[in-house]
Structure formats: structure tokens, C-alpha cells
Amino acid sequence: MLYRPFARFLVVALLVIGVLTLWEFLRPLPLFARFARGNQNLGGVVLKEVTALGKLELVRYTFKDIVEHSQPRTMLPNARAVLIVQGEATGCLDLTRLTAADIETGDTVVVHLPQPELCNWKINHDQSKVYDTEYGFLDESALVDGAYQKAEAQIRQAALNSGILAQTRQNADKILRPMLEKVAGKPVVLRYTNTLTR
């Protein structure tokens, strides 16, 4: 007798899983495109904060990658999203940290610059797309958001691994030093402080 309610529950659970799986496979077909919701944009832009900038951007790396992200589940199959992403990372010097004490004058001008840092890294959503999702069901947006966060972290790590900070130093020597020499009328040497980079 106890097996009969359990058997009914098992049949219903398998039926629900089967219907959701079938919907996942049929949803991308053109026949079901009419069930997609239209976009609605509401709201206005409000200025929240004004920040003074002093970071000199010296190099930008552009990356393209295929990112696979999965969410493990206990009862259902693991949800999976595959993205084709394009992103960028920028190396810069924070000139707001320069003080008069960082500039030594004489026959040669010595400028003690802050260490190069990774100013920003981001995904270009206009040039990225969701290639495929599986078993996302009701939390597909959270699955895709998690995939984009993973992709953004990979862009940051790829930039650091590709030597963006060393390239920022080289570009500072090529771009900043000649400008300072022209202004000072003397040879300029760029040195870097021992502060940590981001």
C-alpha cells in the first residue's frame, strides 16, 4: 500500500521533468518564437555621483572567449550556459597619487610614478551573446548572469597573465616620458614606487 502513493509521486515527477526537458529542446525552434515576450523599457536616468578622474590609460587589451558555466543540481540535470564573449581590460597609472615629493629636479628630472594597475575590465555585451543554454528552466537569467560574472573574472585574469601591467610601464616610457622631457627641457627618468598593484 505504501508503494502506490510513492509510485504516483514518481510518475508525476518524471512527467514534469520530461515536459520541462521537451520544452527546453523545442523552445529555440521558430514555431515557438511567438511565445517570447516583447521588450519594454521604462525609467529615466538620474545623475548619482560625479568623480574626478586622474588615471592615465596607457594600454587596452581586447579578448574573445567561449565560456561554459554550469550550476550543479541534486534532482534535475545540471543547468548549463555557453557564451561567446568579447571583453576588454585597461592598464593605467593613477596620477592622482603623485605629489610634489615624487618629483626630483636637477640635471635630470626623476619622477616616481605609482605602480601600473588594471583600471577596469568588462564584458562588451553588444558584442557578446548567449550561444546555448540547457536545463535553465525557471532560473535561466540567473544562470546567464553567473556565466557573465565568470567571463568577467576570466577577462581580468587573462589580462594579468598576458602582461598588461608590464605593457603599461612600456607605454608610459614611450608616451609619458617624451612629453615630460618636452615640458621640462631636461632628460626625464621614470621610476616606480613599491606600492602594490590591483
Rank of each mutant, 00 (worst) to 15 (best):
residue 1 M to L: 12
residue 2 L to T: 13
residue 3 Y to Q: 12
residue 4 R to C: 10
residue 10 L to G: 10
residue 11 V to H: 02
residue 11 V to N: 05
residue 13 A to E: 02
residue 15 L to T: 09
residue 16 V to H: 02
residue 20 L to W: 14
residue 21 T to S: 14
residue 21 T to L: 13
residue 22 L to M: 14
residue 26 L to A: 10
residue 27 R to S: 11
residue 28 P to L: 09
residue 29 L to Q: 15
residue 29 L to E: 15
residue 30 P to E: 12
residue 32 F to H: 06
residue 35 F to A: 04
residue 36 A to V: 02
residue 38 G to Y: 01
residue 38 G to I: 05
residue 39 N to R: 12
residue 40 Q to T: 11
residue 40 Q to N: 08
residue 41 N to S: 09
residue 41 N to A: 09
residue 43 G to L: 11
residue 43 G to Q: 07
residue 44 G to E: 15
residue 49 E to N: 12
residue 50 V to F: 03
residue 51 T to I: 15
residue 51 T to F: 02
residue 51 T to C: 07
residue 56 L to K: 05
residue 60 R to I: 07
residue 60 R to Y: 02
residue 63 F to A: 06
residue 64 K to P: 05
residue 64 K to D: 08
residue 68 E to H: 04
residue 70 S to A: 13
residue 71 Q to I: 15
residue 72 P to L: 02
residue 73 R to N: 14
residue 77 P to R: 09
residue 77 P to L: 15
residue 79 A to W: 09
residue 80 R to D: 04
residue 82 V to T: 11
residue 82 V to A: 06
residue 83 L to S: 05
residue 84 I to V: 11
residue 85 V to F: 02
residue 86 Q to M: 11
residue 86 Q to D: 06
residue 89 A to C: 07
residue 89 A to F: 14
residue 90 T to R: 05
residue 91 G to K: 00
residue 93 L to C: 07
residue 96 T to E: 03
residue 97 R to G: 08
residue 97 R to E: 01
residue 98 L to S: 08
residue 99 T to I: 08
residue 101 A to E: 13
residue 101 A to S: 12
residue 102 D to N: 10
residue 103 I to Q: 08
residue 104 E to W: 03
residue 107 D to W: 09
residue 109 V to Y: 01
residue 111 V to H: 00
residue 112 H to C: 11
residue 113 L to C: 00
residue 115 Q to V: 09
residue 116 P to G: 02
residue 117 E to V: 14
residue 120 N to H: 09
residue 122 K to Q: 11
residue 124 N to E: 07
residue 125 H to E: 10
residue 125 H to A: 06
residue 126 D to I: 07
residue 128 S to D: 00
residue 128 S to E: 01
residue 130 V to I: 11
residue 130 V to A: 00
residue 131 Y to D: 14
residue 131 Y to R: 02
residue 132 D to Q: 13
residue 133 T to H: 08
residue 134 E to P: 03
residue 134 E to V: 06
residue 136 G to W: 15
residue 136 G to K: 13
residue 136 G to L: 12
residue 139 D to V: 10
residue 140 E to T: 14
residue 141 S to T: 08
residue 144 V to R: 15
residue 144 V to F: 13
residue 145 D to P: 02
residue 146 G to N: 13
residue 147 A to R: 06
residue 148 Y to P: 04
residue 148 Y to A: 01
residue 155 I to W: 10
residue 159 A to W: 00
residue 161 N to Y: 04
residue 164 I to N: 01
residue 164 I to F: 00
residue 165 L to V: 02
residue 166 A to R: 14
residue 167 Q to N: 12
residue 168 T to I: 13
residue 169 R to D: 01
residue 170 Q to R: 09
residue 171 N to S: 05
residue 171 N to Y: 00
residue 171 N to A: 08
residue 172 A to R: 00
residue 172 A to N: 04
residue 176 L to G: 05
residue 176 L to N: 06
residue 176 L to D: 06
residue 176 L to V: 09
residue 177 R to Q: 11
residue 179 M to L: 12
residue 182 K to S: 13
residue 183 V to H: 01
residue 183 V to T: 12
residue 188 V to R: 07
residue 192 Y to G: 03
residue 197 T to L: 03
